[in-house]
Amino acid sequence: MRITARTDYAIRAMAELAGAPDRPLKAEDIAGRQDIPVRFLFVVLGDLRQARLVASVRGPEGGYTLARPPAEITLADVIRAMDGPLVSVRDLKLTGLEYQGAAAPLPDVWRAVRTSLRQVLEGTTLEDLAAGTLPELVQERASAYTDDIRTYP
């Protein structure tokens, strides 16, 4: 899975909105806090609005707010809104995917990858980010992380 800049910016912007549930935030303020190019952020916020994850508020005190409570929006929701499915193999459904010969077990690997991603991304909400309290599963997997793939458990 590759996290695009667009998705990274979207999640960071949504985390800022989750941290300010009582008032709209201006795109310029979000951009400044997260070091996101403001022009790009306007495009991202427009896509999030179209996906009904954020709402825009007009007027001098306007800006952007979450369209739902932060506990109801997962990281998976944001990623899907920005980039589509979490895991896909050549845009095919993973159920019924079959390979021959030595690659025959590979569809099970792809399904396991998708399941692992879903556990982490659907189990982590914007409320978790804003509160700084990640789910136990995320904390466990993050503490096991290493850049050396040969030693990853």
Results as ranks from 00 to 15, higher is better:
residue 57 V to Y: 05
residue 103 A to P: 00
residue 40 F to S: 14
residue 101 G to I: 11
residue 101 G to E: 07
residue 93 K to F: 14
residue 118 R to D: 07
residue 118 R to C: 03
residue 87 V to D: 01
residue 42 F to C: 02
residue 65 T to N: 02
residue 94 L to A: 06
residue 85 P to F: 07
residue 98 E to L: 13
residue 68 R to A: 07
residue 111 R to N: 03
residue 103 A to M: 10
residue 68 R to D: 05
residue 95 T to H: 14
residue 86 L to Y: 07
residue 98 E to C: 10
residue 67 A to E: 09
residue 51 A to T: 12
residue 64 Y to S: 03
residue 53 L to E: 05
residue 119 Q to G: 05
residue 52 R to Q: 15
residue 103 A to Y: 11
residue 62 G to M: 01
residue 121 L to P: 00
residue 44 V to D: 04
residue 110 W to M: 15
residue 64 Y to D: 04
residue 71 A to R: 15
residue 116 S to C: 07
residue 51 A to N: 11
residue 89 V to G: 01
residue 47 D to G: 13
residue 54 V to C: 07
residue 115 T to Y: 03
residue 65 T to H: 03
residue 101 G to H: 09
residue 81 A to P: 08
residue 101 G to T: 08
residue 99 Y to P: 00
residue 103 A to H: 08
residue 80 R to S: 04
residue 51 A to Q: 13
residue 79 I to Q: 10
residue 66 L to K: 07
residue 75 L to M: 11
residue 91 D to Y: 01
residue 118 R to T: 09
residue 94 L to I: 06
residue 56 S to I: 00
residue 99 Y to T: 05
residue 89 V to W: 14
residue 94 L to D: 05
residue 87 V to L: 08
residue 104 A to V: 04
residue 54 V to Q: 02
residue 107 P to C: 09
residue 122 E to I: 01
residue 110 W to H: 13
residue 42 F to S: 12
residue 63 G to H: 04
residue 93 K to M: 12
residue 50 Q to I: 06
residue 58 R to M: 06
residue 68 R to Q: 10
residue 76 A to T: 05
residue 93 K to V: 10
residue 58 R to F: 05
residue 112 A to H: 07
residue 114 R to P: 00
residue 107 P to V: 08
residue 43 V to Y: 02
residue 67 A to T: 04
residue 47 D to E: 15
residue 120 V to Y: 02
residue 73 I to R: 04
residue 73 I to W: 04
residue 123 G to Y: 01
residue 62 G to F: 00
residue 81 A to Y: 07
residue 90 R to P: 00
residue 119 Q to A: 13
residue 61 E to N: 03
residue 61 E to W: 05
residue 52 R to V: 12
residue 47 D to Q: 15
residue 87 V to R: 01
residue 89 V to I: 14
residue 122 E to A: 00
residue 113 V to N: 02
residue 50 Q to C: 03
residue 50 Q to E: 13
residue 106 L to E: 13
residue 45 L to S: 05
residue 78 V to E: 11
residue 109 V to K: 05
residue 69 P to Y: 08
residue 86 L to I: 12
residue 121 L to R: 02
residue 56 S to N: 08
residue 87 V to C: 02
residue 116 S to M: 07
residue 103 A to F: 10
